[in-house]
Nucleic acid binder design. Structure first.
Length: 431
RNA sequence: GACCCGUUCGUCUAUCGGUUAGGACUCCAGGUUUUCAUCCUGGCAAGAAGGGUUCGACUCCCUUACGGGUCGCCA
């Protein structure tokens, strides 16, 4: 029997990291087992559903590279994949349940009568868990059909998992206590249950529950913050899952290869944006310069910086120095405009440096160079310092600040070449 | 409050009874780079507490503490 997993979001908000990771684990498991990954939209709460939220979820999954084999925009033989369009199916199951004598009326609503017995489940992550349903105060009989005739989550979720032949339900730990309810429902329906794997939740850095408003929560924010989808996927996979090796940087394909439910952790993980940025840097470093340049272009244009003729050379000079694509504009601005902001602290420090007195001499020397190259410019620095009994390294800092206005930046040689003779001399003199 | 799950460096984690408890992020120091970054080397830093079981416990059991989750005609 082939593995079938599903991601079943309700379109009431944006795709957040927790949901994205749930989707990722379902997707990884399905791909690893050569099974199918199904997307199902749980839009039974008409009052809270929005088209924007639905679209944001689709977009988020697509951006992450989590394609679905069946679902909206894709079809499949177990559709429709919107719960709002499956009323007839639910009615059929409801009749079945009604006939089983497990339902009773509460006003105009219907409740499902639980078996008052301990329920034991075997969770693929949590192990064996028993909930004692003899204690009805903690487990009141649940409503499965509202007084307005609509069905609640527990019922439709179970029916759909059965109908869609889901074999493995991988979901957040917030559903762990729902599972016995679902198991009872499935048993009453006379069906076989899928296997369950409840994954720990993702917490904020301070340990509080991560909700949609918290920093880093919305997947939709990541692209414009300069993250690569491969990095985000890599990072959230590491939240609660480990490759059991010292390696941490993986492509989606490598994750599929290494993934296993058994390697999922039981304790909730805190979200560390710093490490996420580092992972992004690792992925950024692995892509070629041309691709990097294309990816960075929108960010450069967004800051109203010109995409110059030597754009590729400019990007090459800074490629290894940024963690996020959003850092690119500031990293290159002094190379492509004359009006870039300066770091006043660095400027003061450079001006206080006694070697700054050599800058005019250096400027003259550079102005007289016949052939402009990084090599020759650097050699000129060497000549100036030896003539004045200083050390080359000491002059590098003032030169850097004079040319870039910053204490940190690309290799000086790159700066010389990109700026060219005229601008280099001009900036040294005006400094 | 009841019930469920959990607890190894600040954070993510390895360890499936015997290890100087390993790696990564962050931070610090040194080296490389005549400069910045990268990179390399090193450092700081952990088994929540108390009881058992055992020749031996981070690992198994119990208690407590703490964290998270659930207890809806939300999903």
């Amino acid at each position: 029997m082939s593995v079938r997993t599903r991601f079943a979001p309700s379109p009431t908000g944006y795709l957040h990291v927790g949901g994205a990771r749930t989707a990722l684990f379902n997707w990884l498991f399905a791909r690893k087992q050569h099974g199918s990954f199904i997307l199902r939209v749980e839009d039974t709460d008409a009052a809270r559903n929005t088209d924007e939220a639905r679209q944001a979820i689709f977009d988020g999954l697509s951006w992450l590279g989590l394609d679905w084999d069946e679902g909206p925009e894709k079809g499949g033989k177990f559709g429709p994949y919107y719960q709002s369009r499956r009323a007839e199916i639910y009615d059929t199951y409801f009749e079945k349940l009604l006939a089983s004598d497990r339902l009773y009326k509460d006003g105009d609503a219907y409740r499902f009568r639980f078996d008052r017995t301990p329920v034991t489940m075997r969770d693929l992550v949590c192990g064996e868990v028993t909930i004692d349903y003899r204690d009805a105060s903690n487990t009141p009989d649940m409503v499965i059909r509202r007084s307005d005739g609509s069905y609640v989550f527990h019922f439709v979720n179970v029916v759909d998992d059965l109908e869609m032949k889901i074999t493995h339900v991988i979901r957040g730990e917030d559903h762990l206590m729902n599972t016995p309810k679902h198991l009872q429902l499935i048993a009453a329906l006379g069906a076989a249950s899928p296997q369950y794997a409840h994954i720990p939740l993702i917490l904020n850095p301070d340990g509080s529950k991560m909700s949609k408003r918290d920093a880093g929560a919305a997947i939709g924010d990541y692209p414009r913050q300069g993250f690569l989808s491969a990095a985000v996927v890599n990072f959230i996979a590491l939240l609660g899952w480990s490759s059991k090796s010292d390696d941490e940087i993986f492509t989606l394909t490598q994750l599929v290869d290494r993934f296993s439910l058994a390697a999922i952790n039981r304790a909730p993980a805190r979200f560390d944006l710093e490490k996420c940025k580092w992972v992004n840097q690792q992925h950024l470093a692995k892509i070629d310069t041309e691709t990097f340049a294309e990816l960075a272009k929108p960010f450069v244009e967004n800051e109203n910086l010109p995409v110059t003729e030597n754009y590729l050379a400019v990007i090459t000079a800074v490629k290894d120095k940024v963690r996020l694509l959003t850092e690119v504009p500031h990293a290159i601005d002094f190379l492509v405009t004359d009006t870039a902001s300066q770091d006043s602290e660095a400027v003061e420090k450079a001006k206080a440096n006694p070697n700054s007195a050599l800058l005019p001499t250096l400027a003259d020397q550079l102005a007289n160079l016949n052939e402009w190259s990084a090599e020759n410019a650097k050699q000129a620095i060497g000549e100036v310092v030896t003539a004045n009994g200083a050390k080359a390294g000491q002059l590098m800092f003032p030169v850097r600040v004079a040319l870039s206005g910053r204490a940190h930046g690309p290799d000086l040689g790159d700066i010389f070449e990109i700026l060219g003779k005229e601008k280099t001399v001009k900036r040294l003199r005006s400094f």
